[in-house]
């Protein structure tokens, strides 16, 4: 097990290094930030000064080496726009996005898995056909439109839930969170559900497919032949077998939730990272873009690592083959 984790860790570091190179080079060949920073009346000397201060006079590999050197010390450069460390600007926005993504993930699991198992166990009932039709809607309706409809129905017409911002927040371990106050929870619900809708549909489909496959396996019949209650057959024998693909996909999708919550954050004016990256791309604020992308890469890599470890806990066969190889 330890060998397995160490190997995975080394692979993760390699991935981060390669990605940092791609991100850095990629961002540095797009556009010219100097044009955005310097006023039109500036003369050549002023321009040179700005270029020098941003370190853009050096060849790209020196820039890259500096960037890596800084990154290793936790310094991803200063924002061209705000003049503050890029990492700090992003870190300030992370909790809001994280909370939103986590809430959406919890909804996807809590709503998606039971519905999927039900649809898998009783595929011919009206209920499960409704669930499956609903999941198609969840897949195909555009997020921004659903978000706007939510605001219209629940905030404007019914007036049940607020439509913008995070509401009251409380500090938990030094981080502002919404979900611990009633007001914050009310603010969190609509955007989280909006973000979760796609994932709920996906979890339903995944769980249903898994259930349909596993329920016909001999070991399920054998479990019933042993006289186990239906509850135990479904919750232990079936669930543990279908959780492997669900955990994998959910893990990867959590990264996606964080990275691409841009739309939902914009619709609901949720003060997270998504809005920040859109602004930074528009103003060609390279350090913030690079820092954001690096953080996303890091999040994906960490999630992958955690999923792999979970995997081996869920399925003993994975553990064994990994140790052998």
């Amino acid at each position: 097990m330890t060998v397995f984790i160490i190997r995975r860790l080394l692979q993760s570091i390699a991935v981060v290094l390669v990605m940092s190179f791609i991100v850095f080079v990629g961002v540095n060949i797009v556009g010219d930030p100097v044009e955005m920073m310097v006023s039109d009346e500036a003369d050549q000397a002023e321009r040179e000064k700005v270029i020098k201060s941003m370190g853009l006079d050096k060849p790209w590999y020196i820039q890259y080496a500096r960037f890596i050197g800084g990154a290793l010390q936790g310094d991803l450069g200063k924002s061209f726009v705000y003049g503050e460390p890029a990492l700090q600007i992003i870190a300030h926005r992370i909790p809001a996005t994280f909370e939103l993504a986590l809430a959406a993930l919890v909804m996807a699991v809590v709503v998606g898995i039971p519905l999927g198992v039900y649809a898998g166990l009783r595929p011919d009932t009206v209920g499960s056909k409704t669930i499956m039709a609903g999941s198609i809607l969840g897949f195909s309706l555009p997020t921004f439109w659903v978000g706007l409809m939510f605001i219209m129905v629940f905030a404007v017409i019914l007036g049940w839930l607020p439509s913008t911002g995070r509401g009251d927040t409380v500090e938990l371990l030094g981080i502002d969170v919404s979900f611990l106050t009633m007001d914050g929870l009310a603010h969190l619900f609509l955007p989280a559900f909006n973000l979760a809708l796609f994932k709920i549909s996906m979890v339903i489909r995944l769980t249903r497919a898994g259930t349909r496959e596993v329920v016909h396996q001999d070991y399920i019949k054998f479990a019933r032949a042993k006289g186990l209650s239906n509850r135990r057959v479904v919750l232990v024998h079936l669930m543990k077998n279908i959780m492997i693909p669900v955990v994998t996909v959910l893990g990867l999708e959590f990264g996606g939730l964080i990275a691409f919550s841009v739309v939902t954050e914009t619709v609901f004016a949720w003060p997270g990272m998504g809005k920040l990256i859109i602004d930074s791309i528009q103003s060609l604020d390279r350090p913030v873009i690079v820092a954001y992308l690096m953080i996303i890469v890091l999040i994906f890599v960490i999630i992958n690592l955690v999923v792999d470890i979970f995997y081996s806990l869920l399925d003993p066969r994975v553990r064994l083959s990994e140790i052998k190889s």
């Binding site: 001999d218 019949k221 054998f222 032949a225 042993k226 543990k240 869920l314 399925d315 003993p316």
Partner: peptide, 30 residues
């Protein structure tokens, strides 16, 4: 009655035990 007064043994031993549960779990629950 199932697994208690009337027990059944299946054809394919590779498929009758749940692959993700330990043998003791599968016996104790019975």
């Amino acid at each position: 009655l199932r697994g208690n007064r009337i027990a059944m043994i299946f054809q394919d031993p590779m498929m009758t035990l749940n692959p993700v549960l330990r043998v003791d779990t599968q016996m104790i629950e019975t």
